[in-house]
Amino acid sequence: MKLLQLFGAGFSMSVRRSVAFRTNLLFDVVLAFTGLGTTIAAVAIVFTRTDTVGGWSKAEFLVLIGTYELITGLRSAFIDPNLSWFPDNGIRNGKLDAYLLQPAPSLFLASLSLSAPLALIQCVLGAGVLSWGIGTAPDKPDLYGVLSWLLLVIAGLVVTWALSVLLACLAFWAPKLQLDVFYHSAWQLGRYPTDVFARPIRFALTYVFPLALIAAVPSSALLNGPNAGQLAAGLLAAAVAAGLAALAWRAGLRRYTGATS
């Protein structure tokens, strides 16, 4: 309850402060628009030459892009402001020390207490593309499809959070290794159905760095109806990832505070 209050307070303060920068707002809106436009244009070009890519139709691609955009927007709004460039922004400037002194769980404070509300524009646009995709799909999703999509998107968000935490935890062992650029590049792969990639990449995206869960799995659940196996795998992956993130954070803090060594 208190964590929710803290989260809400942080968010409302961020809203007030971002309204103060109106030109930045304009830039961000324009770039969110053109970025999404570029993605859709690239896909549209492909579909002038063919009807399906890797077994996915244009409507399915749009649903996938919308879902991806939605989750990416939430990540940029709530997770990135806390965990991106963690060795510099989180540790070297003393933020982590301050969090350790505060009477709330340090993992919550370090990973979710700051937010960037402007990034939510991406979510709005993503929702637009999502409904466009559903609109052009021949079969409309049923209630179970929508519910399992929702559940899998939540699981995808948990996985997203956990991956960011795990990446940030690297800073405790290798503070010079900043993999943000790598992470953001690899993230781009989530925008496409895993079926189009070569087998080794597909394997990595499903089991090692589970970006397939972010958008491809929820999208196929939405359009093709729920699949008990996929649903269970998604929820399990979320639980395991979150558990790993919490463990890694604990181990990292022990190292940071000198409890081991």
């Binding site: 492909v46 030459r49 063919t50 890519v53 890797g54 010079k176 290794l177 900043q178 993999l179 943000d180 650029v181 790598f182 953001h184 590049s185 690899a186 781009q188 792969l189 496409y192 189009v196 990639f197 070569a198 990449i201």
Partner: peptide, 25 residues
């Protein structure tokens, strides 16, 4: 050099996706 390596990945990723998509077509 490790940071440069992440820049390599960043540079490679978009053409690599293009490669896979158009090879599928």
């Amino acid at each position: 050099w490790w940071f440069l390596l992440t820049l390599v990945v960043q540079a490679v990723i978009a053409p690599l996706i293009g490669l896979f998509i158009w090879s599928a077509v």
